[in-house]
Structure formats: C-alpha cells, structure tokens
C-alpha cells in the first residue's frame, strides 16, 4: 500500500461509519431511514443489476459542461417532479453531503436519502443508505459532444435492494424512476432555454438475482415509512394526551 495522495482527493466524500444530516430540515420533512444508517454496499442488492443512461442534448444553448453541472448542483431539488422532495444543503451539492429524500413511488410514500459520494466540476454521484429502493450509484454529468453541443447525462448503475423493491421495480417502480429522471433532464434543459428531448438506454448488467440478499427486506425504508405513516395518528393522540 502506498500513501501518495491523489489529485482529486477533495472530490470524494470522507469515510463515514454511518450517515448524518448536518443541515436544517423543514418541519414537514419525514426524516426516517437515514440518520445512523450505513451506506448500502454497491454489490449487496437483491435484484437484477441495471445500467440506465438518461441523456439530453442542450441544442442551441451555448453553455459549457462545467456551467451545466454548477447550475445542476445549485438548483438540484427545483428540477424534480412535483410532490417529490430532495432536502439537501441550501448552497450546493458537495462531497460528503447527506440529503433527505421524500418521494412517492409506485403509490408508496418513502422517506430515504443519499450520500454525495463524489463531486467535481463536470459530475457528481450519489450512493444510497441501507433500506433504500436500490443499491448502487447514480451519476449526474455533462460533457461536450463531438458536434460541439453540450449533453447532460444521468447514469444509474443499480439493483433493487430487496425482493419487495424488485417486485415494485418490475411493476411500477422502474417506470416511475424513469419518469423522474427524464423530467429532471427536461427541467434542466428548460433552465437553459432548450426544449429537451431526453432519451433512455437500459442495459441489464446482471440478470441474476442475489437470493442470499433476500434478508435485506428487514431494513426496507418503504416498510418503515408505511409503518410510520400508519401509526402517526396514534402518536399524535399520545402527544395530545401527554400535553393535556
């Protein structure tokens, strides 16, 4: 092992044993399944592994890849679909940030989060906590194509974390995820005055399901969120009784 420091050490998150959200959250945010959780191993998911690449050409926008990614980092939550919430730090997205996500996917409410694993001036990547819908990594980037047009891209290298998510992905979840990222790319393009026509390319990297990971279901953020939602009226009642 050598100790030479690489040139891009500041672009990576520092090692952490467990996740912690360091910024303030709005009152309506449901903060479950992130605090104290470990990052999910990139290789420990249950379902088939997919590489999904979403792209949009920013034809007509004279904008460098660095500028696209700067805007993307600074306005990340604004590009999301209505009703899907990303509660990150106010300023921008930086390596090591932990953000909360409250989304509705396939009819199920979900409180989860991400760790910003890597960020440089032309890309940034997220990893997920244990219990998230999928394990793996999602990378947002921009590059200049040979014809001089800048292209924004999202690459998700993911597999469903447990059998319930896999079932969900096979039915409604995968389509919902695709709609989300295609929407983000359309919104990003619109920010630069472009009517974007995003594309999607799907490759199945591994068709085998990892049955030894069946037990991941016990950490499911979806189950925990549903339980939290169902028991909320009871907790409110308890709180009212205690304060009376």
């Amino acid at each position: 092992m050598t100790t030479q420091e690489p040139t891009n050490a500041e672009n990576w998150a520092k090692p952490v044993d467990s996740l912690h959200i360091a910024h303030d959250l709005p009152d309506h945010a449901i903060n479950l399944n992130v605090e104290g959780k470990r990052v999910a191993s990139m290789t420990s998911g249950f379902g088939k592994m997919w590489q999904k690449t979403y792209r949009v050409r920013l034809d007509g926008a004279r904008v460098a890849p660095q500028q696209v990614v700067k805007v993307w980092k600074e306005h990340f939550p604004e590009f999301w679909q209505k009703g899907q919430h990303f509660f990150g730090p106010m300023a921008s997205i930086s390596p090591g940030d932990v953000a909360l996500i409250n989304v509705k996917t396939g009819g199920v409410k979900l409180s989860t989060g991400i760790l910003v694993l890597y960020a440089d001036d032309v890309s940034f990547s997220f990893m997920t906590p244990e219990g998230h819908m999928f394990t793996g990594m999602i990378t947002f980037s921009a590059r200049e194509l040979e014809d001089g047009v800048t292209q924004a891209e999202i690459v998700a290298l993911v597999r469903a974390q447990d059998p319930i998510y896999e079932l969900g992905m096979m039915t409604m979840g995968s389509g919902a995820e695709d709609r989300q990222w295609l929407h983000v790319l359309r919104s990003l393009a619109a920010h630069f005055g472009v009517e974007g026509k995003p594309t999607l390319e799907k490759i199945c990297v591994d068709r085998k399901r990892q049955w030894k990971r069946f037990g991941n279901v016990r950490r499911s953020a979806a189950i925990r969120t549903v339980f939290y939602s169902v028991t909320r009226p009871l907790r409110r009642k308890e709180k009212t009784r205690a304060s009376a």
Partner: peptide, 14 residues
Amino acid sequence: LTEHYRQIFELTRI
C-alpha cells in the same frame, strides 16, 4: 491501492 483509494473502496463497500 493508495490509502485514499483504499478508503474509497471501504466507503463504497467494494
């Protein structure tokens, strides 16, 4: 691996 990339392998749990 350098110490830095070793840490990245640990962080990503690769």
